[in-house]
């Protein structure tokens, strides 16, 4: 029972949430950036001068990982693990933080991969019509909206929790 109690202590739950935000969103971004990178390398092998353009596209699915880190940091800051004195959370508070981390963790993971697909397809645009880069970026940015919304939801939830 001791282990169970420790596992469901408020601080462990809050940290689990923070960790999930970093892990899932980070893995999603890593997969996404990698996926676009593979496609980009294919184009650069033919047209080295397009490097700057495709690098821009490759960077796009990378933001979800940053959003995850951001959410984790806001949680850590709130419960005093970073900068300040650590707070002893109740189990309920811990669950609140855990739930607050879910939007960016899950949406971050999935949207990074979906965005990477759009960005990789955008490299096809750059290959055929280099002047249409802005449109390729816009398609990928459409996906990013949902990651931004999830980040917003997560952060607002974390800010709203009383400790």
């Amino acid at each position: 029972m001791n282990i169970l109690n420790a596992l469901f202590s408020g601080n462990v739950l809050a940290l689990t949430g923070a960790a999930l935000a970093v892990i899932l969103a980070g893995v999603g971004s890593a997969k996404g950036v990698g996926l676009v990178g593979e496609t980009a390398a294919g184009l650069v092998s033919e047209e080295p001068e397009s490097f700057g353009k495709v690098l821009l596209l490759q960077a796009l699915p990378g933001t979800q990982g940053i959003y995850g880190l951001l959410t984790a940091f806001v949680i850590l800051n709130k419960i005093g693990i970073v900068g300040g004195t650590a707070v002893e959370l109740t189990t309920q508070q811990g669950f609140l933080f855990f739930m607050a981390s879910l939007p960016i963790a899950i949406v971050g993971y999935l949207s990074a991969i979906a965005q990477a697909r759009a960005a990789a397809a955008g490299i096809g645009i750059v290959a055929k019509r280099p002047e249409e880069l802005a449109k390729a970026i816009t398609f990928a940015a459409m996906v990013e909206t949902y990651a931004v919304l999830a980040l917003l939801a997560s952060i607002l939830m974390v800010f709203g929790i009383r400790v």
Partner: peptide, 10 residues
């Protein structure tokens, strides 16, 4: 336009 807040905070 909530992205204005989200990106600013980030």
């Amino acid at each position: 336009y909530s992205r204005l807040l989200a990106l600013g905070l980030s």
